[in-house]
Nucleic acid binder design. Structure first.
Length: 468
RNA sequence: GGCGUGGUAGCCAAGUGGUAAGGCAGAGGUCUGCAAAACCUCUAUUCACCGGUUCGAAUCCGGUCCACGCCUCCA
């Protein structure tokens, strides 16, 4: 079984070969911490989480770096509006980000470098580019990367600058750059920046956006590393510019595999504040959905396919998750049984794990991976129905489920999803009524429990209470 | 205008040359005090449309229609 990914660099599926066998250097573009991240952002981070978990599942050692952009136009403007120092302003959103990724069960990166803590490294790159004659300082005191001096520019996208729509956004008059396509490495300070600036050989200023990723990725992962991910919109100009800077400065290939995820749309339209379909994670949680349900929706569509987010999808998620929960509960109940025979279970679990790994190895085919999970559940349920209720079988099946969940991370409920004591009390009262064959009262109690959001199921082992 | 995606059942979504995975919803059945859960059966003669290549196409080629993204700092 070979591991394959779609590489934006070649626009085709490629076998994955890490630089050091068994190890992966992974860089993912992180948030700009000027606001709460929205579910579109999290779609991308969720894709990266599936990628990372798949690599771990397949036995790779992963070094994951995710940057935090804590200085740019938006963070500066935001801090000024809030009357806070830049760092105090961004600290709040950094914390919110970490809280949100925990809710979505995203594995934390190994390193979260912040742009403001790597100014020195960035200046070094600009110096090299300057020495090589690729960077120049314009009349506005800013330093730019000269695309004319770097013919390799345009590896990720075919940009025909003659064909770019002129006059819409590109107003040549406003530029002091040599060419409109040149991009800023170092932005000269101006009054709007207030007290946000660093000293550099080219005067006070701050780094251009692309520069931080070049500096921080190579610092922690090396001048050439395995994988770099982000949203599809980052292909141009962000990643294109990173490649240009890094390769021009380091004289070697920057990244071997570029993976980009498609956008999330809401009810078929791009999410935007003006359309009123803009959601942060908390907007969704406040409507009563769990982080696990949101995760389910975010990971359910292949990462290169645009994901149509809707509340209907969240409702469906709840139903699917209940099936998984019911299955897991059933297995757990069987753990207390005598050992029993588990011959067929080994066959089923090993096929499941094979199918699952093969699906994910094929450019993260998540739908096929879920199909493996559901086929596993169905086959196991069939066995359980036919009397295979030994603890050995349950143990094996639970182990298998746990392995699948190392990638999916949706098979266990969120804390707080447990049954409240007052509901348990009602369920016990109902069971007493059933024992005395007072079915009218038992049914009334079940309705009462249901009205509070819980369901009672009668099983051979007694009643079981689950979330509605 | 340039570049790039995508259109598969009521909904979500795999499948990229060999005769349509999986989930949700729906129908019938087994089980049950009744339910629920679980299991079984059924639910696309067909993959936007029109041509072409092929023994064979959802899959390849050409065209048409529709939707979406990027084109200077938006994941």
């Amino acid at each position: 079984m070979t591991l394959k990914f779609y590489n934006t660099l070649s626009r085709r599926l490629e076998e994955f070969r890490p630089i050091v066998p068994g190890k992966v250097g992974l860089y993912t573009c992180g948030p700009t911490v000027y606001n709460y991240a929205h579910i579109g952002n999290f779609r991308c981070y969720a894709f990266e989480d599936i990628l990372k978990r798949t690599l771990l599942f397949l036995g790779y050692e992963v070094k994951h770096v995710m940057n935090l952009t804590d200085v740019d136009d938006k963070t500066i403007r935001g801090s000024q509006e809030a009357g806070l120092k830049l760092n105090d302003f961004t600290a709040k959103f950094k914390q919110a980000f970490f809280a949100d990724i925990a809710v979505l069960r995203l594995l934390p990166a190994d390193i979260y470098p912040a742009a403001t803590e790597h100014i020195g490294e960035m200046i070094k790159i600009v110096k090299v580019l300057f020495d090589r004659g690729i960077a120049y300082q314009a009349e506005d005191r800013s330093v730019y990367f000269s695309i004319a001096k770097w013919p390799q520019y345009g590896q990720l996208v075919n940009i025909d600058r003659e064909q770019m729509r002129s006059g819409v956004r590109v107003k040549l008059d406003e530029y002091t750059k040599d060419s409109a396509a040149d991009f800023a490495l170092w932005k000269a300070w101006d009054e709007a920046d207030g007290e946000v600036y660093w000293d550099s050989p080219w005067g006070r200023g701050r780094p251009g956006w692309h520069l931080e990723c070049s500096a921080m990725s190579s610092k922690y992962l090396g001048a050439t590393f395995d994988m770099h991910c982000g949203g599809i919109d980052n292909i141009f100009p962000h990643h294109e510019d990173e490649i240009a800077q890094s390769e021009a400065a380091n004289g070697c290939k920057f990244v071997n595999y570029w993976l980009h995820c498609a956008h999330l749309v809401v009810d078929g339209q791009k999410m935007s504040k003006s359309l009123g379909n803009f959601y942060t994670l908390h907007d969704i949680l406040d409507k009563g959905y769990s982080g696990r349900e949101v995760r389910w929706v975010l990971i359910g569509t292949h990462y290169r396919q645009s994901l149509n987010f809707s509340f209907q999808a969240l409702e469906d998620a709840r139903a699917s998750l209940q099936r998984i929960d019911a299955f897991r509960t059933r297995l757990q109940e069987n753990l207390a049984n005598p050992a029993g025979d588990s011959g067929q279970v080994e066959e089923i679990t090993s096929k499941t794990l094979d199918d699952f790994a093969a699906a994910l190895s094929d450019d993260l085919n998540i739908s096929a991976a879920f199909a493996a999970l559901f086929e596993f559940i169905r086959e196991m349920n069939r066995l359980l129905d036919s009397g295979c209720t030994g603890s050995n079988a349950a143990r094996l099946a639970l182990d298998c489920l746990e392995k699948l969940d190392r990638v999916l991370a949706v098979c266990t409920p969120d804390p707080g999803e447990g049954v409240p004591p007052e509901i348990t009390a009602l369920a016990e009262e109902r069971q007493a009524a059933r024992k005395s064959k007072d079915y009218a009262r038992a049914d009334a109690l079940r309705k009462e429990i249901e009205s509070q959001g819980w369901l009672v199921e009668d099983t051979p082992k007694g009643p079981r209470v689950i979330r509605k």
